[in-house]
Design a protein around this nucleic acid. Structure first.
Lengths: 240, 240
DNA sequence: CTGCGTGTGTTTCCTGGCGCACCGACGGTA
DNA sequence: TACCGTCGGTGCGCCAGGAAACACACGCAG
């Protein structure tokens, strides 16, 4: 968790802020390095910081009483971690697991509350982001129920690729299986099918996206819907 | 949609408000009667009013690009319809379908915005409710994926019973099937199992809950988790 | 070179739920 | 009373995915 040299923010949400608010916000941020496998928040744990991933990304995982786990969304440089603070609560229902190591900006929860109170632009922006999250959550419920492993895997790879800003991912079948809530063997089959169609290549945990366009076709419509929603609500609607 | 005689609010959220705020809020509400099957909001439609169900209740349904549909949550006298307004957006990603006919209070979106701006208590309360919703959405995603029809049906009946304030529900198997995103025959089997265990009785669309305690045991833990969450965040944490 | 850990391919058997279709039973209406 | 629409029970073939193994293959460390 060593501090990194401060560098221009490449978090998309922060980039959307007016210069004033953004500058003031950034001076109170600390640059940290998220390491793979780190758990940033536990269900019912207290939120200590908000995080704005830069090149890193984090899975948000729902956990049922029976210990079943399912990834419900992903946060990278397009988002923020610690949304319940917007709602005035300092607990998170979801486990946040660092899935792509890399730099992030973070701010203590208390400071964040102050900035939020002082910057209407920040408030408006993060409310919009919260709307996107809610939309995604309800969509994920239906997607997970109706769509098959292969399409869901394709979608998941695309989302990961977007957040990793790279064609090259490091993910074992076993890890993918727990994220999608299916068996490892199920991932093997789906991954082989995608590889046979020339959409991806993988070897001992190294996955390369070969043909992004056709991978989008192989994924369920939920990926495209997600992208459209974000663009409409944040990128275009986010005139703050 | 004829106006009803104004009567004391029995919406739990409104009951949580301080007397002042509540009185002022109620004077701007209109009493309406929700009729079974009415669609209050469509995905991408504009939110015209917020609704506070009294004895009525409404299903919120996610719809994917492929037309697959799944109920993701339910709003009765414990909640409110039109939450995106809290986030500054006047669109809803979900279809709202009246499932239990009955009275509700409603307020035009614009008026609601004003009340919201003037009442910090209202804001705080509804933010908490929004947190509960988000938690539920992520839980539903996992529940729908991992739990079997019988447990999900039991859960669903319990949730409906709570919101209908009655042991007696009118629901055909076909309707339940679309809500849970399964076949009608699947509901028949699950319902027969619950009936054989003496938990419910049904006959041509009339369902009676006979043994609520054991029905809770038959349901997945998600029902109890939902109740606990609401109690903790709204009933107890909601000192506004 | 050997050995072990990790990651992946593959097999067998099993089950929950799907799609589809048919039929019987009930209850309101003519 | 006869009819018909709605509701629910059932049967059939089918398939995706679950559970649990086993086998292989690569790559690093000793």
């Amino acid at each position: 968790m060593k501090p990194l040299p401060l560098r221009p923010s490449t978090n998309y949400l922060l980039d959307c802020l007016p210069c004033q608010d953004r500058a003031s916000f950034l001076t109170h941020c600390e640059a940290v390095n998220l390491v793979f496998g780190e758990v940033i928040s536990e269900p019912d744990g207290q939120i200590q910081h908000v995080y704005f991933p830069l090149n890193s990304f984090v899975s948000l995982i729902a956990q049922l009483s029976g210990r079943e786990r399912l990834e419900v969304t992903m946060v990278g440089s397009e988002g923020m971690l610690g949304m319940p603070l917007i709602l005035g609560l300092d607990e998170s229902p979801l486990r946040a697991l660092v899935q792509g190591a890399g730099p992030a900006l973070r701010m203590p929860a208390a400071d964040f509350g102050q900035h939020l109170a002082q910057s209407p632009a920040l408030q408006a922006l993060l409310k919009r982001y919260l709307y996107v999250l809610m939309h995604q959550l309800s969509q994920v419920a239906a997607c997970t129920h109706f769509h098959h492993v292969e399409a869901r895997l394709a979608r998941w790879l695309l989302m990961t690729q977007d957040r990793a800003h790279s064609d090259h991912l490091h993910l074992t079948h076993a890890f993918l299986a727990t994220m999608l809530g299916v068996r490892r063997a199920g991932i093997t089959l789906a991954a082989m099918a995608l590889q046979a169609r020339g959409l991806i290549r993988y070897h001992r945990g190294d996955i390369t996206v070969l043909d992004r366009t056709r991978l989008i076709e192989a994924a369920c419509g939920c990926y495209a819907a997600d992208c459209r929603l974000y663009r409409r609500v944040i990128t275009e609607g986010g005139a703050v």
